[in-house]
Design a protein around this nucleic acid. Structure first.
Lengths: 197, 197
DNA sequence: ATCTTATGAATGTGTATTCATTCATTTTTT
DNA sequence: AAAAAATGAATGAATACACATTCATAAGAT
């Protein structure tokens, strides 16, 4: 049992179990079994059940942010940046279904049972979008009247809700890429400055 | 103790308590206290804790659907219909904060712990949007290439996420009406058919 | 007097967390 | 080089507690 990172194994097991049952219905023993570890071992790596969830958030969203920021650095046109953000976000939901479910569901719930916990990683992720809008406005591509704070939520909400339902429903009348394309098209042509193509 | 509808009192209390603590952390005794009723009385009106949540969904979303459909009947321009839907949805979130929080949070969670329960009322609500798109496409106002199934999710998601955050954050840099206006503007000008104003 | 509605203490279950014990490795002693 | 001692990661049975649900009893209505 050397050479196996228990911390990572537990986090991965927790993603699977939380996705299947939800945080509250998930039992520590479920996670332990999934991770092939004793119940008590979990408490050597995490303080309690909440702590597993929070660590999971921080670490996984952290990775996503790194990826996205890297992608954004390679682009300069704000329109392409939005398109790429949309596609990347939705592909992520497709490729990492379990993680997606946990993030989408428990993110909402989390404020309730962890009053003190402010999900700063998540804010950082969504702020990538407002930064794009800001850039687009400065370059005169996007309307100045747009409120970046409204836009980032609307754009993220649109992507998130669409991918959430896509993951849930068994029969897909459209692909993830099509949906991402449609959504970024709508938003981009909806926010162009006057006189821009 | 006549003249007071216990069923309604319990539902209202449950909205308050679920909003404050979330479904899982809410205790039956909390709801009973809030409704000024004994713990056991709740079981005269509901089968169990889940049943309270489901009844709450059905009844409250039912009322909202009635309101919205009435509003839609008074309009004929698909663009105005989207605007009105957006404004109405967001005002609802402002006026009925507690209900909004419960619907937004538990709606996501609900699939997990009630596998059998399909939230048909909620689907009916969102389908109001796809009906508008369909109408707009038939009249040649909206692009034919739009997938109504994608649009309804994107539009609803945008409104929902924006209002969710508006309700959570203490300092508002914009009003609900402004946000609703911006979002419907973006979507409408983003989906117009070629050659339309 | 009977039926309906309401009460809240008691019950029972589920499960998060603890902690005494095990045992494979590593370190020290001879 | 072998034996003895120390270490601490891992275990999982035992604990402790929270809380949904029940039900014997009471209050109110007709």
């Amino acid at each position: 049992m050397r050479t196996s990172d228990k911390h990572t194994k537990i986090i991965e097991a927790a993603i699977t179990v939380f996705a299947r049952k939800g945080f509250f219905s998930a039992r520590i023993s479920d996670i332990a079994k999934e991770a092939q570890v004793a119940d008590g071992t979990i408490y050597l790596y995490f303080n309690n059940k909440y702590d597993i969830l929070i660590s999971l958030f921080e670490e996984e969203i952290g990775k996503i942010i790194l990826e996205v920021k890297l992608l954004m650095e390679k682009e300069s046109d704000p329109r392409s940046m939005l398109q790429i953000f949309a596609l990347h976000h939705m592909q992520l939901m497709e490729e990492k279904r379990e993680l997606a479910e946990v993030l989408q569901m428990e993110l909402r719930q989390s404020n309730k049972f962890m009053k003190e916990y402010r999900n700063t990683k998540f804010i950082e992720y969504v702020d990538v979008v407002s930064a794009i809008i800001h850039k687009g406005q400065e370059e005169g591509v996007f309307r100045k009247s747009l409120l970046p704070g409204v836009f980032k939520r609307a754009f993220f909400g649109a992507l998130d809700e669409t991918s959430r339902l896509w993951v849930l429903s068994p029969d897909h009348t459209y692909t993830i890429a099509e949906a991402a394309q449609q959504i970024s098209d709508i938003f981009i042509s909806g926010i162009m400055a006057e006189g821009q193509a």
